[in-house]
Amino acid sequence: MMTRQRIPLRVELPLLIWLVLVWGALWQDFSLGNLVFGAIIAFTVANLLYLPPVELSGRFNVFYAVGFAGRFLYQLVLASAQVFWLALTRGPKLENAVVGVRLRSPSDLLVTATGHILSLIPGSLVVEVDRSTSTLYLHCLNVSTSDDAEKVRQNALRTEEWLIRVMGNREDLARLHPDAPHHSDGRKHP
């Protein structure tokens, strides 16, 4: 038998709500009876098949979330078209780069989310992550000069900034100020 910590219901609640919504959507039936049954199953599954809880910050800004979704869709369409164009015109003559980006937040959730979003947008792909310094190594299509690489870095940092504004905690928000100190010193920016 595994020893496990009791997770307070408040921490578990977002997961349970998400599971109930998935249940309702899969059955295409949002009637009360079905949702209650889904809630029972969600509770059982969450307690029987134990996973370490994801630590959310407790903050969620809906306005920034909508803005972020819009920005994400815009970038998705633009970059998909770009990759198509590159495949047709450049093809084999392509110059890529692996660019290291040092993110501001030490939080696992934010680093994962940023890497995930950057991976979803065509043109950049996370090859390796250094958790101790929250550095993402991105493989980028069609980057040949250091100016292009700097653009990739700026874009990654802006993505992180949006995510922090959507769901970062107060320390992360404080880090967005330009004169705020970095979370761990002594290592140079890659």
Binding site: E95, A97, V98, E128, Y137, V143, S146, A149
Partner: peptide, 8 residues
Amino acid sequence: LLSMDDLD
């Protein structure tokens, strides 16, 4: 094919 490689 890489113009730069920070990870290397």
